[in-house]
């Protein structure tokens, strides 16, 4: 008998089909509903290299498609980042939002926006770079402060530090906003999270980040499994602990930094999705990481759909929707953990 660790081919196929079905549903629905048949015709035409025309085609190709195509990698990236962070610090409540990484990235983006840092041919470059660097710095600050207080890095300490750090960065963001004058509108955007107005450049940037950082994490899936035994135990079986941590923290910073710079802070995705995947597919990172990519994409597609349609024609920021659902899930996970482990 062979020992297999990854997702079976059957599960991959089922999940890919689920992603495609969700994609179709989400590009058809919105303030203007496009019939499924029409959607299929337009997409088919697009795939055959034709230029479909008409109102439906315009909405679909120029508004909805770039949007859902950025929503999917953002969902995947945030979920992957959450799963990896939870693995490395052995804490199921770790996530970009609970560790202050997302707000750190947002602070970076806001600073870049208010200073007007950008490159001529690539307007988002300034915010992207700032967001990545700031998310990395935030991770290091929160983790080292937590470690200084509590060597065991228990739930309570890390989350408390994360919350305090988030408040600290939020106050900075408010301060910058107070002085930003006419840039206020675009900055407000970052603090709430929205993927309206995404373009194909963003899609490309997100996909490249997802592929590179995602591969780096997948190549460390075995190390992440080892970390789930404990850091010392990982070292005892031969894991280069420092190197692994660095690779994972840098990958996570890239994933969160790029997601935040494109979509603003979208909270709790990295908490809900990995938790669900762990229940569905188990805690082995060879299964957890790929399933997070699929489920994260599907999850955020529907969150975005809710944001677009719930009180249409007014659009809710997607971060508001995920935070609403995420906060409730957080309480449930925390409660269940305390009941089980007492930590």
């Amino acid at each position: 008998m062979d020992i297999k660790e990854g997702l079976s081919l059957k599960k991959h196929i089922i999940l890919i089909i689920a992603v495609l079905i969700s994609l179709f549903i989400c590009i058809s629905l919105g303030s203007v509903s496009i019939p499924i048949k029409e959607t299929i015709n337009i997409i088919w035409g697009l795939l055959l290299g034709k230029e479909p025309y008409g109102m439906y085609a315009d909405i679909l190709i120029h508004v909805r498609l770039p949007r859902v195509l950025s929503v999917m990698p953002v969902g995947a990236a945030l979920s992957l980042a959450g799963a990896a962070m939870q693995g490395i610090i052995r804490n199921p409540l770790a996530d970009g939002s609970t560790l202050g990484t997302s707000s750190g990235a947002a602070l970076g983006a806001v600073i870049a926006l208010s200073l007007g840092v950008w490159l001529p041919s690539f307007p988002v470059a300034g915010t992207v770079v700032f967001a990545i660097v700031f998310s990395f710095i935030s991770l290091i600050i929160v983790l080292s402060l937590s470690y200084a207080v509590d060597k065991l890095l228990s739930n309570n300490t890390i989350i408390l530090m994360g919350v305090i750090f988030s408040m600290f960065t939020s106050s900075f963001i408010s301060l910058i906003m107070a002085f930003s004058g006419e840039r206020l509108r675009s900055i407000t955007f970052w603090t709430m999270g929205s993927l309206a107005g995404s373009n194909f450049n963003n899609v490309l940037l997100l996909l490249i980040t997802l592929i590179i950082a995602g591969s780096a994490l997948m190549l460390n899936a075995r190390e992440l499994n080892a970390f789930s035994l404990g850091e010392d135990e990982a070292m005892h079986i031969g894991v280069d602990v420092k190197k692994t941590k660095l690779i994972i923290l840098v990958s996570v910073s890239f994933l969160i930094g790029v997601s935040v710079s494109v979509g603003g802070s979208i909270g709790f995705v990295g908490l809900i999705v990995p938790h669900t995947c762990r229940l569905l597919f188990g805690g082995n990172h060879f299964k957890l990481l790929p399933s997070c990519v699929y489920v994260g994409a599907i999850f955020l597609l529907f969150m975005d759909l809710i944001a677009r349609t719930l009180v249409s024609p007014v659009e809710l920021p997607i971060g508001v929707v995920t935070s609403f659902i995420g906060a409730i899930s957080f309480v449930i996970i925390y409660y269940r953990r305390r009941k089980h482990a007492g930590t």
Binding site: K4, A221, R222, I237, G238, R278, N284
Partner: peptide, 24 residues
């Protein structure tokens, strides 16, 4: 860890395994 017995024992082969992705 939320791993099975086989998965935990497999990690013992970490230092011997040269595989990049899953599988032993």
């Amino acid at each position: 860890p939320s791993l099975s017995v086989t998965e935990v024992v497999s990690l013992g082969r970490y230092s011997h395994s040269k595989r990049l992705f899953s599988g032993l």
